[in-house]
Design a protein around this nucleic acid. Structure first.
Lengths: 337, 337
DNA sequence: CTGTTAGCGCTTTCAA
DNA sequence: TTGAAAGCGCTAACAG
């Protein structure tokens, strides 16, 4: 091929340092890792030369030998979904505290990219993985699963649950959120609902819908329910709702089963000149900054920072004690405002 | 097929594969990397065994030998700042396309964490770094700079420019944005302004202010300008503006020099019962979803996706052709609405 | 306190 | 088409 012209900016190694101080690499390695095991003067000398040469340890060499990495992997379908903002914050903070670094992957909703991400993470011998899969439908059986199980590294799932994976996870209280959301709307006097969810077979959507149906079934008065499905993103939700409104439908309230769906619904309402006085809007997940704009959108909000924290702590616990068998955790929602 | 009784799933290596097919590691390695250089049957055999054993290449061993990594580093002060959402999206997408993985660091505004992030990236022999530093003040001279230069790996800065670093970058058109923003407000008839910026000595803030002052100086009528400083985050901006309003000050318009500052200012206004009819609000950077809520906040918006794209492409070009000396790029703002 | 030896998993000549 | 030998940078185990 080509490009052997690339000058290799030969980085300083412990061998270079060793030569300069007339010691062996072993001593240099020790000086760098267990300073107390080296004579003070030697140590000082080595450290100085190291600094002089801008020495940076080679993580690859170190890991190859020690079989231990300080790396976590985080895989999500969309890093830019505000829902994950706080999650990521929590995870990076805790990882940092424990001196781990993070490798982030945005799978952009693609199962193939998800598989690639897992492969890469595995090849980097990560100490643990936090995983939010692209689909939580029952028939999603990612091909990497056997590999991942066999690798024997701790995995914690968040938000979306893989149907048949033996990993613990942190999830939302989906049924309950649906139940409480629709109940709040019922209390306000609304009777006719449009619920906009994710994919028809997504378990999260199914659970939330189950909660909603449970509340409606219990309710003594007559109610009605229409349901639209999308893919948890804004565009499809907007289109579906827009088409629905175009058909002249006017429910009392629209219940978006996640943040982006709600925003998409709101867009559709605006397109059709429908105000939030005409149709009440309700969301699962809080719309960022909404409170700054006047009328906030009522919702079941989730403490996503806590979710991230819980996940990373499960991972860390598992790493500290591999015997430990973590149990699933659930983050409960809170009715806003 | 034989079942697997191994309790400890020690990872398979090419040595394991080699044994199973009665070949050497060399052949296995070749089969995996240059399939065309291996006899078809051998290849098929090797690939099958590899799959059977759930083989995953060890990136560390590979890199140690080949001195070439498929890793990028991205360092920013706050991953959860919406400003970076699209930037990250663009970068992850392009990196993915070229089969690079991303290591993300959130320095949380701490110079020390920034230094650690760079060290880690260097130790992982990353192929390139995209860097948005914690401070763009002239006297910020991070200690890692010599190390980073010496490492000789491509670095592209974004948004915030390190005063004395020899790296190219992608920046915003700060002076111009200030100029155009205040001009828009002047045209609307506003004359008395409060500008809320970042740190007093931040070059970005200085540039934007310079643009603002230039416009005001040119303006024939009498105008006035107050300036408050914060740190580019929401809390301090809110406090500063709140205190300002508490003193009874009522400018015609408040100009927030970035998104979080504007949101903080808006919070302060709400605290003091000041509506956006009383005081016009203007921002640099677009407030996400604001248009969905009615009255959007007028602003100079920046195409942050383009910014990220530009940065990653500079990096890739530099990697493809190390001779290439990239020039700084500037992303221009756009007046909204 | 310091050195010797050995090897992690992989790739790279060079040779067959 | 395949293999033998060597070594990337580092650290563990055992001497001394």
């Amino acid at each position: 091929m080509d490009s052997n012209f690339m000058k290799k900016p030969s980085k300083a190694t412990i061998t270079d340092i060793a030569k300069r101080v007339n010691m062996t690499t072993v001593t240099v390695s020790r000086a760098l890792n267990r300073p107390e095991k080296v004579k003070k003067e030697t140590l000082a000398q080595i450290l100085e030369v190291a600094r002089e040469l801008n020495y940076v340890p080679n993580a690859f060499a170190r890991n190859l030998k020690s079989r231990e990495s300080r790396l976590f992997g985080l895989v999500t379908a969309s890093l830019d979904n505000p829902f994950y903002g706080e999650v990521i914050k929590a995870i990076t903070r805790e990882a940092k505290r424990r001196d781990f670094s993070l490798m982030l992957f945005d799978t952009d909703g693609s199962a193939e990219l998800e598989a690639r991400a897992i492969d890469t993470l595995l090849s980097y011998q990560v100490a643990g993985i936090i995983l939010s899969v692209v689909s939580d439908e029952d028939d999603y059986h990612p091909s990497y699963l056997p590999k991942l199980e066999m690798a024997g590294i701790p995995v914690v799932q968040i938000d979306r649950k893989l149907a048949d994976a033996p990993f613990a996870g942190v999830y939302l209280d989906n049924q309950e959120s649906g139940y409480r959301g629709i109940s709040a709307l019922l209390e306000q006097g609304h009777r006719h609902f449009l619920v906009v969810g994710g994919p028809e077979r997504s378990n999260i959507t199914l659970s939330r819908l189950a909660g909603i149906r449970r509340a409606l079934d219990q309710y003594p008065e007559h109610t009605s329910l229409d349901v639209l499905h999308g893919d948890y993103t804004q565009g499809p939700a907007r289109e579906a709702v827009s088409e629905y409104l175009a058909r002249g439908k006017r429910p009392d309230a629209i219940f978006g089963l996640n943040l982006l769906i709600t925003l998409g619904s709101l867009e559709a309402m605006r397109q059709h000149g429908v105000s939030r006085n005409d149709i009440q809007l309700f969301s699962i997940d809080q719309v960022p900054y909404a409170h700054l704009y006047g009328e906030p959108i009522p919702c079941i909000s989730h403490d996503t920072y806590a979710l991230g924290l819980s996940a990373i702590n499960m991972l860390l616990k598992k790493i500290d004690d591999p015997q430990h068998v973590p149990a699933d955790a659930v983050v409960k929602g809170q009715l806003q405002p």
